[in-house]
Amino acid sequence: MAENPTPTPARPRDAAIGTGLGRVLLLVYGIFALSASARALVQISSHFSEAPLAYLLSGFAGLVYIAATVGLAIGGERGRILALVSCSIELLGVLVVGTLSIADAVAFPDDTVWSHYGSGYGYVPLVLPFIGLWWLWRNRPRP
């Protein structure tokens, strides 16, 4: 497909939506944003009282993935901060929830995307924040 010849408004250089590899990253993040939030929505709407903590956590994880996807996509100063914060929360979340779900199975009777370090999702949730942070580091602003 031909490049758009008309000059478009300047997009931040580090916006993931602007490069091929970034688009693949966004696709993976988007899949997780979708699956984590859809799962939480079903859990919260159908049987919330069974495991409120796990379901709220699912919902929170979904929101974090959405924020990370948006932040990585738009780039620039605001996008970087949004992505940096959400990827860090993601990393902390998968490590803390992963450890707790193994150590204290009673508190997490139903799975979230971060339980057992994301083993239910092929450990992708464990790898993804590192890739997101790597992306931010790779595209860090240089003087």
Binding site: T19, G20, R23, L27
Partner: peptide
């Protein structure tokens, strides 16, 4: 659809992810 928007090697990675 997404792979057609990205006619580079990364389009193949999109197909692979899907």
């Amino acid at each position: 659809y997404l792979a057609r928007l990205e006619p580079t090697r990364w389009g193949l990675l999109i197909l692979a992810v899907a």
